[in-house]
Amino acid sequence: YSLDTGLVLTVCDITPASLVYANELILLFHNVTLGMAALKDILGDTLKNGRGEDVKTESLNGSDRVVGLYFSAHWCPPCRGFTPKLIEFYNNFKQTEKGENLEIVFISSDRDESSFVEYFDEMPWLALPFSDRDKKAQLTKKYKIGGIPSFILLDAETGAVITKKGRDGVMTDSEGKNFPWFPKPLKELLKGKFLKSATGGATTTDEELQGKVIGLYFSAHWVSVPGYLNMLKVYIMA
């Protein structure tokens, strides 16, 4: 996580065996997972606009820009209910001072291209070409899309996920006053004191953690799977 913005920078699966390679993990963290993921690496070189014309993905780049990935399909009733609300939000937000900072890309789960064309014709934004089914599958896996509609917001410069709850943002903040709905920074969530040991009673404060790389280790004494190594999620913050 970034302590300042609350954005997830990387999530690592750590096993006891992998701790042997701690130095390599630290090197990976600094040199790879914090590296910027260009939008064209995420979405491909070109997208489509409503007229069927190619649009360079690089045209969406920008330090203050946000790209929303809208996973949806015409056959999905909840999608058909949410899409008009998203269109209304998009059109209204585009009229504001920050309107140029937002673009949306439709990621279709339609069953055939004719359904995609009919559905996309309602939308005022861009779309991943329907023919690129491999890229659609990669995006679904990358962002762990378990159901639609799903609206994910990305930082256009770094490719980092700002929020996976864009749908909630549209429904609860229709004027976009808090757009792009950054999660609360961890430095706010981690205020207070922390134990240095379970028995000694010594503590440290959130102020002493500033400027450090911190791992949040989620575990419990009762966790044990015979015959398998326990998988531990470690969230890295900088």
Rank of each mutant, 00 (worst) to 15 (best):
N91I: 07
E24C: 02
E24L: 09
A220I: 01
D168L: 10
A160G: 03
L47C: 03
K191V: 11
L69Y: 09
L39I: 12
Y21C: 04
Y143V: 08
A238C: 03
Q95E: 14
L232C: 09
D64E: 14
L43D: 03
V67C: 11
N178Y: 05
Y119C: 08
T204M: 13
R65H: 14
K142N: 12
T15K: 13
A37W: 05
A22K: 13
G176C: 03
Y90W: 12
I107Q: 08
P180N: 10
W125N: 02
S219T: 15
V11I: 06
G68Y: 10
L186D: 11
G211H: 12
R111N: 15
A73V: 05
N92C: 04
S197K: 04
T205K: 03
L139M: 07
K136A: 13
P78N: 03
T15E: 13
A156I: 09
G192H: 04
L229I: 00
F182G: 02
G44K: 03
G201L: 09
L60S: 11
N92I: 00
A238P: 15
L43S: 08
L60P: 04
S72P: 07
V66T: 14
M231R: 13
K94T: 01
P78E: 02
G215A: 15
H74I: 15
K196S: 00
P124G: 01
T203G: 00
N101T: 14
F82V: 05
L7F: 07
G6A: 02
F194M: 01
L102M: 04
F82D: 00
K85E: 15
D64V: 02
P226L: 05
G62D: 10
R51Y: 04
L229F: 11
L86D: 09
N91T: 06
N178I: 00
M171A: 12
D206T: 00
V32E: 13
Y235K: 02
T172W: 02
K144A: 14
Q210H: 10
E207M: 00
D54F: 06
P78K: 05
A38T: 07
G200A: 00
S109E: 15
I145Q: 05
M237D: 01
G201S: 01
P124R: 09
V170C: 04
N101H: 10
D112E: 15
L153W: 08
Y217K: 09
E175M: 07
F106E: 06
K136S: 14
I148V: 14
E100T: 06
F130C: 02
A238R: 12
Y70I: 03
D41M: 01
T163K: 06
K40N: 15
A137G: 06
K193T: 15
V105M: 11
